[in-house]
Design a protein around this nucleic acid. Structure first.
Length: 300
DNA sequence: GTCCAGGTCGCGC
DNA sequence: GCGCGACATGGA
């Protein structure tokens, strides 16, 4: 049992401009395990299970035009593992997405009320789509405190530990969730009726009936992705639209109680707003409408 | 105890 | 295609 971790350091180029703090903190995922934000060092950490099964701890720091990646690991990393980590970081921070058009449109349309900081626009996501979908399912029909609680327990009960440290665990694999079964999920993680949805998705992935990599194809139109996502049980209109955002498709609003309340207050004098009315508000933003809403509600 | 939370499903019409 | 009740759980 190796006990002393070694630390690797990698660097990953970032686009310019790039706002590290906004990317991480503009979205709630940062407070969901195994994400962790450490303010004194301004570092984002995440216990991460590699495809090989090796569990490492990642620490991301803002560098000069780079992300510095520190990796705590009990055994040395192969080239493939390094590559996997780099790709995970690129996905989490959306380093391959461009937001120039969003900023340009913002100046054109609404430069006053939606003051975007240079380099903002990116919203943190998980290293893998599977994790983003489970997080999203944990936001449905529940208060945010409940989301945190459910994710906490899911990780605590089913995630692989880092260096045998019991409260330092990676996000569970589909295999672990599938093997756990719905009774376990209900009793141990507090997922409630969502247990069946989470278990069914995990099982479908393990059995090869669902291939989530197919969803990452940027060439697929939003409507088609939406139809594909809706086939996952438990993923309704809100969840599908949220997952589309996570996939980098911002041309569809995820209308939920939060958005309804915000739009009603800001644009309709606290009167209830219909879906059509909400969509009309953000329609001018075209393929950026989700982000327009998101950053508008943040700056409020 | 009762209500409800960043919804969704499966019904019946 | 739309309206409605049920759904697990825990905090207010």
């Amino acid at each position: 049992m190796a006990s002393k971790p070694s630390t690797y350091s990698l660097e990953e180029q970032v686009p310019t401009p790039f706002d590290f703090r906004s990317t991480i903190q503009a979205h709630g995922w940062v407070v969901l395990r195994p994400f962790e934000w450490h303010e004194p060092t301004a570092a984002l950490s995440r216990i991460h299970r590699l495809e090989t099964g090796k569990v490492v701890q990642l620490h991301l720091h803002d560098g000069n035009k780079v992300i510095r990646i520190e990796i705590d690991t009990v055994s040395s990393l192969t080239t493939d593992e390094e590559t996997e980590i780099r790709q995970s970081v690129r996905r989490m921070l959306r380093l391959d997405e461009g937001f120039e058009a969003f900023h340009q449109l913002s100046k054109q349309l609404d430069g006053q009320s939606l003051a975007l900081k240079p380099g903002s626009g990116r919203l943190l996501r998980c290293p893998r789509l599977f994790e983003d979908i489970i997080y999203t399912l944990c936001t449905t029909n529940i208060a945010w405190s409940g989301t945190k609680r459910m994710v906490d327990r899911l990780v605590a009960k089913l995630g692989d530990p880092f260096m045998d440290i019991h409260d330092q665990r990676a996000f569970p694999t589909a295999e672990a969730i599938a093997a756990a079964g719905t009774d376990f999920l209900k009793q141990e993680t507090g997922l409630g009726y969502r247990s069946a949805y989470v278990w069914e998705l995990a099982t479908a992935i393990v059995e090869g009936q669902v291939d989530l990599d197919a969803f990452e194809d940027q060439a697929l139109p939003t409507d088609e992705l939406y139809r594909m996502l809706r086939q996952i049980k438990g993923v309704g209109d809100y969840a599908a639209s949220t997952i589309l955002m996570l996939l980098g498709h911002y041309d569809r609003l995820a209308i939920d109680s939060e958005m309804r309340a915000f739009v009603s207050t800001k644009y309709f004098d606290n009167q209830p707003a219909s879906n059509d009315q909400i969509q009309a508000i953000y329609a001018p933003w075209g393929r950026w409408q989700y982000l327009a809403y998101w950053f508008e509600s943040l700056s409020n």
